[in-house]
Design a protein around this nucleic acid. Structure first.
Lengths: 208, 208
DNA sequence: GTCGGAACTTACTCGTAGTAAGTTACTTGG
DNA sequence: CCAAGTAACTTACTACGAGTAAGTTCCGAC
C-alpha cells in the first residue's frame, strides 16, 4: 500500500543550508556550461527545488552568479597574494605569483571558467564583478611592479598602469590558452617563460 | 484626402542593397549595445523591415554578427600586418604593430566593441569567429617573434606560443583599458611602453 | 495580360528570466 | 494539545527574444 507517510527523500531545510546547496549546484553547472548556457531551471532541477525559491534567496541570475564569483575571487586572490608576499625578492615574487596563478587554475578548472573564460557578459552586475576581480589583480601587480623599481624615485604612473594591464591580460589569455591546448606546458614552464619575457623590461619604466 | 498612392517612403530594394543596409544597422547597434544587448527585433526596426527577412539573408543572430565581424577582421588585420611589414627591422616592427593596433581601435571604437570587448560569447559560431581573429593575430605575432630571433637556430615552439599569447592578451586588455579610461595615454605612449617592456625579454627565448 | 520568382509580412512556437499569489510545514506561546 | 505566526516552498502565470511556417505583394519576362 502506498502509505501516506512515505515521503522522506528531501524535506525542508533551513535557509542557510538551502543557500549552500544551491550555491554548490550553481558553481558546478556554471562551471560546466558557462553563464549563458545555464538556465535557472537547470539549477532548480539539480537542487530539487522550484525556481522562485532561488529568486527569493539570490534575487536574480546575476545575483547567483555573483555569489559563486565571490568565493572564487577571494580564494584565488589570497593564493596568489600569499605566494607573492612569501617570496624573498621581487624577481622571485614575479615568478611565484605567475606560478600560483597557473597552478590554481589547473587545480580548479571549473572555478576558472566561471571566473573568466565563459562567464563574460556584455553588461550587468556579473560583468562588473569579474571586472572587480581583475581590478584587484591589477592593483596587486602594480604594487609588485613598484616594489621592483628603485625605491624613492617617483614613477610614471601611466607606465605602471600599462605594464600592470599588460601582465593581467597576458596571464588571463595564457590561462585560457592552456585550457584549450591538449598538452599545455606545465605551470612552471609558463611562469618561467613569462618571467623571462618581462623581467628585463620591467626596469625600463621611467620616472614621471 | 489621404490618397491611396501616397506610399513612397521605402520601397522594395534588391537583395544586395538590403543586405548592406541591414549589415550597416547591425554594426551600429552591435557596436553600441554589444551582442547580448542587441535583439533581432531592434535591428529589424532600425532598418524598417521585418525580422524574418533578416533571417532569410543572414540565417541567425550569430550569422549576422559573423558578417559584421568579417569586415572588421580583414580591415584590422591588414592594417596591422601592413605596418609590421613596412618596418625596416624587428625592433621597429614590434612598435609599428602595436601602434597600428591601438590607432585603429581609437579610430573605430564601435568596430572595437563588436570585435572584442562586448561581443564575447560563451559558445557558438560567434565566439569561434572572434577566436579566429585572435588566432590570426597570434600567428602574426609568432611570426614576428621568430623573425626577431637568430636565424637558423631551432626554437622552442612552446616558448614562442607562450610569448605570442601573452602579447595578444596584453594588447587586448590594454585596448579595453584605454576605452574605459577617461584620458588614456596616446597610442604612441602605450606602444612605446609595451615595446620597452617586451623587447629585452624577447631575446631570452631558448632553443628547443 | 499572366506566370514565376524574389522581396517581404503576419502570426505564430518555444525557451528562459522573472513574479504574484497562494500552500505547507515548523515553531512557539498559551 | 492547539492555535497562530512565520519561514520554506510551489503552482501558475507574464514578458520577451530567437527562430519559423505559411503566406502575400510586387516586378520583370514572355
Amino acid at each position: 500500500m502506498t502509505s501516506t507517510t512515505e515521503r522522506p527523500p528531501k524535506r525542508r531545510r533551513d535557509r542557510a543550508a538551502r543557500e549552500r546547496e544551491i550555491l554548490e549546484a550553481a558553481e558546478r553547472i556554471f562551471g560546466e556550461r558557462g553563464y549563458q548556457g545555464t538556465s535557472m531551471d537547470d539549477v532548480a532541477a539539480k537542487v530539487g527545488v522550484s525556481k522562485p525559491l532561488i529568486y527569493q534567496y539570490y534575487g536574480s541570475k546575476d545575483g547567483l552568479f555573483l555569489a559563486c564569483l565571490a568565493r572564487l575571487r577571494g580564494h584565488l586572490l589570497d593564493t596568489v597574494a600569499d605566494a607573492v608576499m612569501a617570496a624573498p625578492n621581487a624577481e622571485d615574487a614575479l615568478y611565484a605569483g605567475f606560478l600560483a596563478w597557473f597552478r590554481f587554475l589547473d587545480e580548479h578548472p571549473q572555478a576558472w571558467s566561471v571566473l573568466v573564460d565563459e562567464g563574460m557578459l556584455s553588461a550587468g552586475p556579473a560583468a562588473a564583478a569579474t571586472d572587480e576581480v581583475r581590478a584587484a589583480f591589477i592593483e596587486l601587480i602594480a604594487t609588485m611592479v613598484r616594489m621592483n623599481l628603485p625605491a624613492g624615485r617617483p614613477v610614471d604612473d601611466d607606465e605602471v598602469q600599462i605594464v600592470a594591464q599588460s601582465i593581467s591580460g597576458a596571464t588571463e589569455r595564457l590561462a585560457i590558452w592552456r585550457t584549450r591546448t591538449p598538452t599545455p606546458p606545465t605551470p612552471e614552464k609558463v611562469a618561467r617563460t613569462l618571467q623571462d619575457l618581462l623581467w628585463q623590461g620591467l626596469h625600463t619604466i621611467k620616472s614621471s
